[in-house]
Design a protein around this nucleic acid. Structure first.
Lengths: 334, 334
DNA sequence: TCTTGCGATGAAAGCGATTTCAGGCACAGT
DNA sequence: ACTGTGCCTGAAATCGCTTTCATCGCAAGA
C-alpha cells in the first residue's frame, strides 16, 4: 500500500503538497498538481483512513442504530440514509438496538467509540432524558428518527402519527363504518399513543363516540395482532372495521379473522399503518397509512449533514402520512 | 475526550503500561493494573480508534456489500453477519451494490479505503475473475456469499441450489403433478441456473420429461413473476404446478393466477424459493424451499473471522435447502 | 557478596496523514 | 536596483496509540 511519502517522492514534491492536491485545501500550481495526480495514479494511492482520521478527527462515516436492520420497516429507512451518505462520500456503520435500552446504549457507545462523525438514532428503549443528553452533550451530532422529543425537536425526523391515526379512522368512517376497533402498539411507544389519539379524535369528531372496549393494546407484531383480534371478536363481535397500529399486526389480524370465518373486507374491513412492502402481498391487499420511509431516511441524513458541514439544506422534519387504498376496506351498505 | 497520556499521568505510569493493561498484551503487576483501571474509569477513557488503527493497522470493523441492505432477503443475511460481528466486538460497515458491476466495485473500493479488516461480498454484477482477483490479491480477507467460484471455493458460502431446485420439483412430482412449469431468475445468475438444473434433473429422473416450453426466464422480481406467469398460461395452459425461482416471483405469479381465475392451489400449485418472511403472509401461505439466511450470514462472518484471527472455527460452506410445507401445493387427484 | 536472570516498567520510535508557519521566488511598483 | 506583495511550496509539529528495546530492581544461585 503506497503512502503519501512515496507519492511525494515520485512527484518530487513534499507530502504537504500531495495532501493539498488531494484535499484541495490550498491552491497548487497546475504543473505540480499534474505531477502529483500522475504519481497518485501510478502508485494507485489511497490515503490511509486512520492517519487521516487521526489528523482531522473525522472518520467519513455515520453511525446508524435502528431496532433491527433486517426488518423491512427499518430497512427502508436505512436505505434512504445510505443513499444520501453515498452521495456525499460517507460510509455507514450500523448496529441494531433491538428496542432495548441497554442494548441501544451499547450500540451507540460502540458507534461513537468508532468515532463516527454523526449518528442517526432510532431508539425505542432509551428514555427521553437519555436522548436529550446524548444530543446535547454527546461527542458527535445526533439526529433522531421516529420520536419527537420536544426539547430537541430540531434534530427529530418523525411522522405525524396523530394525523395518520385520524386519517385511518376517517377513511373507515367515510366508508360507512361506525363500530371501528383499534389494535394499538405498546402504549409505551409515543407512536402508538399518537395513532390512538388520532383515531379517538376522528371518532369523536364524527360523533361516532369513543369506546374503550373497541381498543386493545398489542405489540406491533404479527402474533400480537392475531391475539388482539381474537380478543376483540370476543368482546365486541359487532365490529365492522379494525384499524391496526401497523401492517404486521394487520397481517396477523387478517389471519385470525379468516380463521373465525369473517371475510375481509366483506364482513370486516381492515386498515393498517406503515405500508411496508408486505402490505401489497397480503390477500386482500392491505389498505394502509403510508409512511414515506425512504424519504424519511434521506431527511434524517440531510439533517445530520447540515450539522456536520453547517450548510443549510432544506429538511422536512415532520412527514405527512398518506392513505394508500387497496382492497381490505369495503363500503358499508345497509 | 481523555487520552492515554492523561490516564497514564493520573495512574502514575507510562502510556505504554496503560496500553498493556487495556490490551492484555503483556502482564502488568496487579497493583499497577488496578490503578490504571481506576484512572480509566475516572476519566471515562475510550481509546481513539484512529490512533489505534494507525498503530495496529486494524479497524475492528468488517465491510459488507450486498445487493440491497433493505431487501428482506439480504436483510436476514446481514442480520446473521451482524450477530457474529457484535459477539466479537467488531462493527459493520455496509454498502449496497445493486447487482451492478460498476456499483459493486465502487462499494468494495469504498469499504476497503475505509480500511475494514475484512469483507463479506455478495456480488451479482462482477465477473468471477474480478472476484478471484479480489480474494487473492486484495488488501483484506474476503468471503463471498451466494456464489460458488471454483478456484476460491474455500471462501464461499452458498446454498446447494441445484438440490433445492430438485427438491421443489420432487415435491411437486410426489404430489402427483406432471406438467410442472418453472419461472427462473436471470440465467446470468448461477443461482438461477443451478435451480433450473435441479428442476430439470428431477423431472428427467422421474420420467416426466423436460420440456423447454414450460420454462420461462424472468428477473427475480414480483412484476417479472407476474409477467412470466401470464406467458406460461398462454403457452402451456395445461400446467398444474409452477416452481418459481424465488418467493417474490411466486408472489407476483400468484396474483396473476388469481387474475386469470386459477385457484391456488385448487387449479395450480405453486412453490417458491428462499422462504423470506413474505412467504408466510401470502394467501395461501407459500410452500417454499428455505434458505437459512441468518445461519449463512453467521457462517460467512465466522469464515471471515477465521481468516482474521487464524483460529479454526467449524464453518459450513454449503447449506442444504429445506422444504417448508405450507398451503400453496395441492395433491393431484384424478 | 557478586552475578545472573527475570519480571515489570519506561522511553522513544514509529504509524501516515494534515496543517501551521515560514521561506523562496517572481513580479510589480517606485 | 530595491523593496513590497502574493503565490507556492517545504519543514516540521502534531494527532493518540502500540510496540520494541532498554533498564531497573529484586530474588535466587554461586
Amino acid at each position: 500500500m503506497a503512502t503519501i511519502r512515496e507519492v511525494s517522492r515520485l512527484a518530487r514534491v513534499s507530502p504537504a503538497t500531495v495532501s493539498r492536491v488531494l484535499n484541495g485545501t490550498t491552491p497548487v500550481a497546475p504543473p505540480t498538481r499534474e505531477r502529483v495526480l500522475q504519481a497518485v495514479a501510478a502508485l494507485d494511492y489511497t490515503p490511509n483512513a486512520f492517519a487521516r482520521g487521526l489528523a482531522t478527527n473525522r472518520s467519513g462515516g455515520i453511525g446508524v442504530t435502528v431496532n433491527e436492520v433486517s426488518s423491512p420497516y427499518f430497512g427502508a429507512f436505512v436505505f434512504g440514509v445510505e443513499q444520501v451518505a453515498r452521495e456525499n462520500g460517507l460510509h455507514l456503520m450500523v448496529s441494531s438496538g433491538f428496542a432495548d435500552a441497554q442494548s441501544e446504549r451499547t450500540s451507540i457507545d460502540f458507534l461513537l467509540s468508532r468515532r463516527c462523525d454523526g449518528l442517526v438514532v432510532q431508539a425505542e428503549g432509551l428514555a427521553d432524558e437519555d436522548l436529550i443528553d446524548l444530543v446535547r452533550r454527546g461527542p458527535a451530532p445526533v439526529v433522531l428518527f421516529g420520536r419527537a422529543v420536544a426539547e430537541i425537536e430540531d434534530v427529530c425526523v418523525v411522522m405525524r402519527n396523530e394525523r395518520g391515526g385520524a386519517m385511518a379512522a376517517e377513511y373507515l368512517l367515510a366508508h360507512g363504518h361506525r363500530r371501528i376497533a383499534h389494535v394499538t402498539g405498546p402504549l409505551s411507544f409515543p407512536d402508538a399513543r399518537e395513532r390512538l389519539q388520532g383515531y379517538r379524535r376522528a371518532l369523536e369528531a364524527a360523533g361516532a363516540g369513543y369506546d374503550e372496549r373497541y381498543v386493545v393494546e398489542s405489540d406491533f407484531r404479527e402474533e400480537g395482532g392475531a391475539r388482539a383480534t381474537a380478543r376483540l371478536l370476543e368482546r365486541v363481535p359487532d365490529l365492522t372495521a379494525i384499524f391496526y397500529g401497523n401492517d404486521q399486526m394487520a397481517a396477523g389480524g387478517m389471519r385470525t379473522l379468516r380463521e373465525h370465518g369473517r371475510d375481509v373486507p366483506g364482513d370486516v374491513s381492515v386498515i393498517g399503518f406503515d405500508d411496508v412492502f408486505l402490505a401489497r402481498y397480503l390477500t386482500p391487499t392491505l389498505t394502509t397509512v403510508r409512511q414515506p420511509l425512504i424519504d424519511m431516511g434521506r431527511a434524517a441524513a440531510h439533517l445530520l449533514l447540515n450539522r456536520l458541514d453547517h450548510k443549510r439544506r432544506e429538511v422536512v422534519h415532520r412527514f405527512d402520512p398518506e392513505l394508500v387504498e387497496r382492497q381490505s376496506v369495503a363500503r358499508i351498505v345497509r
